[in-house]
């Protein structure tokens, strides 16, 4: 649960309609969805994400529609993880459920600049800006949530629990 990559920065209130517009919900295939990820906000997202794959975003990221296609499209675009000032409620749960690591850390978001090299340690809740040497800390996820993300999402997690007779 340690990720390293360059920061790709966006602002506040990025909604799920710009993450993946409803007109593209004619498929459930994550790869197909990723082809249109963020295109209404930043047509060059697809190019940028090849080089910068840690999303660093402002407040209320993922507000709007409940579509789980939004975190799926982001994950399939190659984004490793998201650091935000805050997440909208449904997106927060959806991201965990599909195994996309996310972290709320406003102090880090304020300091990180696009292109900075970032290291994110989810187990200990530490974000390091390797470009500047700055370090930011937050409370790590509870173990259950870490486990869901580790297994790649709720489906795999639940499958194992079903096998073990816990669900």
């Amino acid at each position: 649960m340690i990720y390293q990559g360059k920061a790709l920065c966006y602002g506040d209130n990025i909604d799920t309609d710009v993450i993946i517009p409803a007109r593209y919900l004619n498929t459930t295939d994550p790869y197909e969805l990723s082809l249109h990820c963020m295109e209404d906000l930043d047509p060059s997202f697809k190019e940028k994400v090849k080089e910068k794959n840690i999303l660093v975003v402002g407040e209320n990221f993922g507000c709007g529609s409940s579509r789980e296609h939004a975190p799926l499209a982001i994950k399939a675009s190659g984004v490793q993880c998201i650091i935000a000032k805050s997440f909208a409620r449904i997106f927060y749960r959806n991201a965990i459920n599909i195994g996309l690591p996310i972290l709320e850390l406003p102090s880090a978001v304020e300091k990180i600049k696009e292109g900075d090299l970032i290291k994110v340690d989810f187990i200990n809740g530490i974000v390091e800006n390797l470009s500047t040497g700055e370090k930011f800390e937050t409370k790590p996820f509870p173990q259950l949530i870490q486990e869901i993300i580790n297994k790649g999402g709720l489906i795999n997690f639940a499958k194992e629990r079903i096998k073990g007779g816990e669900l």
Binding site: S66, R67, E68, N94, N97, I98
Partner: peptide, 26 residues
């Protein structure tokens, strides 16, 4: 409901909230 505007049903004095697809499935 797997739709963010599921909260509409609160008009009828219930607790209704939007969830994602995996949650609807589970």
């Amino acid at each position: 409901g797997a739709d963010s505007h599921t909260c509409t049903y609160g008009a009828l004095n219930c607790f209704a909230t939007g969830v994602g697809s995996s949650e609807l499935a589970s």
